[in-house]
Design a binder for these strands. Structure first.
Lengths: 200, 200
DNA sequence: ATGCATACTATCAATCCGATATATTAAAGC
DNA sequence: GCTTTAATATATCGGATTGATAGTATGCAT
């Protein structure tokens, strides 16, 4: 009725493994441009932590403002100038802080599963299209990851191998589950099964 | 040099399985309030498609504006009024459209993996904290999903069972991979490797 | 010669996320 | 009895992320 001094929170600068922190981490392998980093996201990092230009460039700008990275403009003939970023000592400290969170998240956002949840509203044909498309995608991914390591951004040896192995394992289990269970979405006797389940 | 009629995109109203579409889907099981839907996200949907109040309420408002849902204000004694939403015929059509995307995404955003990628910059103790924390989380999730189905929002039988089974399978494979491979992050010879790298 | 790929930069609107605010009641703890 | 916590409900706000687009230049293929 008369608000007693509400102030806007000030979230205490949460320790988080965000795009900024990942960029700092990448720079521990040596200087790189935003473009280089995007490629690294595409080839390896992005499989479990995606980021596009719209996140990378603002992240680098913010890091530079806080003095966690420095950059050097390199003029090139023909091509646009490169801004080559390197991590500072302060940046290294901040990276360690970013890694210190004891409960980092692991989130899935799956339009695929959300769609199939409503399989009863879809034609059998379309269900198959969706599933076959996803299987193809997984196949491609497994092919890519099989010839890992192949990217330059890996001082990370141990960690990179662990993460790549994880990706490979989960992708092949993804495939396995779909192979073994896709029938339950398209089986003829679905009507019966459902009725039976309700009946008893 | 003079651009031949570039027009500002008009994104053609992308077909997407977003929060709005999921809310429409939930409403096919009967009318519900935003609060009800949040609970449904927490209990089941959120495991593969998270959404909080900050997404749900704006989504419902937008759906109402477009005439895809209607709502009725229900006055209650003691408690605040409920706004109970129901799907319209137009909304059902839009839902079907939302389900018609042939290539729905399945994305992972894992601070967990991003952190462990840099395991070589972390203490063995902290690596173990992070991993044990995640294992505990998985254990809880498996416990929850074992007593599925238990939520009210499931006309979806087939789809819900498929998705729940998927979650269960992937979670237990997650656990298995960590059990079998966590040693590679904390093995003794890491120190040597790191020292050697620094020394030269 | 025209379009397409590659190499670089960068921005914008739409959306989403996490935290917070407001209000009331009921149960649970001290 | 008093107080804290949980549950029922609504809603908003800043900050971050997404996906698409824009701009500029070279070289390659059709």
């Amino acid at each position: 009725m008369h608000r007693p001094d509400i102030r806007p929170a000030m979230p205490a600068e949460r320790i988080s493994m965000d795009v900024k922190t990942v960029c700092l981490g990448m720079l521990t392998d040596g200087p790189a441009s935003g473009y280089d980093m995007k490629k690294c996201f595409e080839s390896s990092f992005g499989h479990f932590f995606p980021a596009g230009y719209g996140s990378i460039y603002p992240a680098l700008a913010a890091l530079a403002r806080s003095g966690l990275v420095e950059f050097e403009k390199i003029l090139q003939e023909g091509k646009p100038d490169r801004k080559v970023y390197s991590i500072t000592e302060k940046g290294r400290e901040e990276l360690i802080r970013g890694l210190s969170n004891s409960d980092p998240s692991h989130k899935i956002r799956s339009e695929f599963l959300a769609t199939l949840w409503f399989a009863h509203l879809m034609s059998e044909e379309h269900i198959n299209t969706v599933i076959d498309g996803k299987l193809e995608e997984i196949e491609k991914f497994l092919h890519v990851i099989d010839q890992f390591p192949d990217c330059e951004c890996d001082s990370a040896q141990k960690g990179a191998l662990f993460v790549a192995g994880f990706g490979k394992h989960m992708a092949s289990e993804f495939r396995k589950y779909i192979h073994n269970n896709r029938d339950m979405l398209t089986d003829e006797d679905e009507e019966q099964a459902v009725l039976a389940a309700v009946a008893q």
